[in-house]
Each structure stands twice: as C-alpha cells, then as structure tokens.
Amino acid sequence: MSITLISKEGAQFLVSKPVADRIGVVRDCAYGADFWLGYAVATDDSMGITLANVTSSILSKILVWCEHYKDMEPLVDGDSNMEFPEWDMAYIGHDMNQILFVLEAADYLHIPGLLLLACKGIADVLDGRNPRGICDLLGIVMDFSHRQEVDMDKENGYWRWFLHPT
C-alpha cells in the first residue's frame, strides 16, 4: 500500500507505508482513524494527503530521512549527550536555513527523531559563540544597554543568594 503526499506547491510524492509511518501526521491521518472508527481513512492509493505547510524541496528531504529509517528506529529521546550516527549528521548538513525549515516541518509533521536531529544541527551552529556572535548569526539586535551588559558580566548571584535566600 502506498500513500500520496501533496506538498504546498501541489507536487505529489508517492510513499510506501513504512515510510509514511515515520510521519506522525500522515500516520494519524491515514491510519489513526482505524483505532477510533474501526477502519482506516486512507484505504485508496489515489487519496492524497495535503501537507500545506511543507514545500516540495523540504518534503523530499524529509522523505529521504524517512526512507532511511523505515526499517530501524531513529534516536528519539534520551541523554542530550547522545551521539547521532554519521549518516544523520551528514544528512542534516550545515545549511542553516534548510535546517530551520526541516525543524519546522518536523514539528508540523510530528517526526520526533528528525526534530531532535534538526535541533542538534542548529545547536551545533550556535555552539561556542559569544552573545554578540549569536546575535549576528540570528540577525537580532542585543537590547541590553552597555551598562546592563557590564552588569551582567559583573553579576554574581551566589553570595546574594547565600546571604538572602528568598
């Protein structure tokens, strides 16, 4: 059995069931009703599921991931110190814009494994930057005044907390 996924632009992707199972929204949409209604909603190959928030390029990229993990379980949760497989890191790459799209799409499509991977990819980009560097990267303006910045540098809440444990 296969399911047709329709991207934002209207492009159609025919995916097999194991691949579609990786996409939470599709799984719920196609088979979730089976649990409640006693029958599946999507029983016909011709039926397509429109994913209005996902563009074709991102959807095709996501399907690559789903295809890769159709027979094995991806890393979903656990220690934040966990090591992702090399394939995953190569898949997510360093294109920051694309990683963000993948992250949003993974959130929308409810793919926890891919969401985790995208978060990891973004965290790797942010890793080791000082606040000014982060602001530059994110294109935001630090809204702390210089005095406040200095105060933040000087601050040491420990003794205050120790002496005034409120």
Binding site: C119, A123, D127, P131, I134, L138, I140, M142, D143, F144
Partner: peptide
C-alpha cells in the same frame, strides 16, 4: 537543551 551550559548562558545574554 542541545547546547552546553555556557552557550545557554550566552543565549540568555542576547535579548531580554
């Protein structure tokens, strides 16, 4: 949550 503690600290110093 995927950042190191120092990076989180730095993130907290970007915007209010």
């Amino acid at each position: 949550s995927h950042l190191s503690p120092l990076d989180v600290l730095h993130m907290a110093r970007t915007t209010r």
